[in-house]
């Protein structure tokens, strides 16, 4: 079953499609090319039945293969829901505005900064979210984590889970990176202790091992 055929969860808030539909009803404003405050208010009122917040609302997230139900204000970020509600504290809060990568998780195969995505956005998209806690299988370290340990690609370790997730997503998409490619491709994660030399070696080594069929 393709994604398109899946039964859509009820969408909350004023979606793009709803907005266009509502706006086309206010033809005078559209023909003038201007939306007045009253038009916007009308559009909002019409959509109120589907609006979320500002109070807590239920939402369902697919995290590490499990469906997780939470009831939170719509303003809560994906990072905060992972850390504070689901006790998945591997992703770290550092810059809290999409610069340092310490909060990196993988969403439908792509690395994202979870501090700059709302939890409700992740819930509504129905995306599959993978955190570093999901990498451990049967108590065994993931190949990427293990390569970080072997190459001492960590000191205080606060950037490490984000780096491991970014590296894993990168290797999944680029199975045979060179040392030079790794340098150019993992610029979205910052480390303060200065572990980049170990990270470069770890990523190349992990990629080679993953091709060997371990992951």
């Amino acid at each position: 079953m393709s994604k398109r055929d899946e039964p859509r969860k009820e969408k909350r808030g004023l979606g793009r499609r709803d907005f266009v539909k509502l706006v086309s009803g206010t033809s005078a404003a559209v023909s003038a090319g201007v939306l007045t405050d009253a038009d916007l208010l009308g559009a909002q009122t019409a959509a109120r039945g589907k609006m979320s917040g500002p109070g807590a609302v239920p939402m369902a997230l697919r995290v590490n293969g499990q469906q997780r139900q939470v009831t939170l204000e719509p303003r809560v970020t994906l990072l905060d829901v992972l850390r504070d509600s689901l006790n998945l504290t591997g992703a770290k809060k550092v810059c809290d505005r999409g610069t340092c990568g310490a909060c990196t998780v993988i969403m439908d195969g792509k690395p994202i900064y979870s501090c700059t995505m709302l939890a409700i956005e992740a819930a509504m998209s129905g995306a599959s979210i993978e955190t570093i806690e999901g990498l451990v299988s049967e108590g065994e370290l993931h190949v990427v984590s293990s390569a970080f340990v072997q190459n001492d690609a960590q000191q205080c370790g606060f950037c490490t889970p984000g780096f491991v997730m970014a590296a894993k997503a990168y290797i999944d998409a680029h199975p045979s990176p060179t040392y030079q490619q790794v340098q150019r491709s993992l610029g979205g994660n910052l480390c303060r202790c200065g572990t980049y030399m170990g990270v470069r070696r770890a990523v190349v080594e992990a990629a080679m091992k993953m091709k060997g069929g371990r992951s």
Partner: peptide, 12 residues
């Protein structure tokens, strides 16, 4: 290798 490496690199 550092002893707390596995705990750090796995987010534990």
């Amino acid at each position: 290798s550092r002893l707390d490496g596995p705990a750090k690199a796995s987010g534990r």
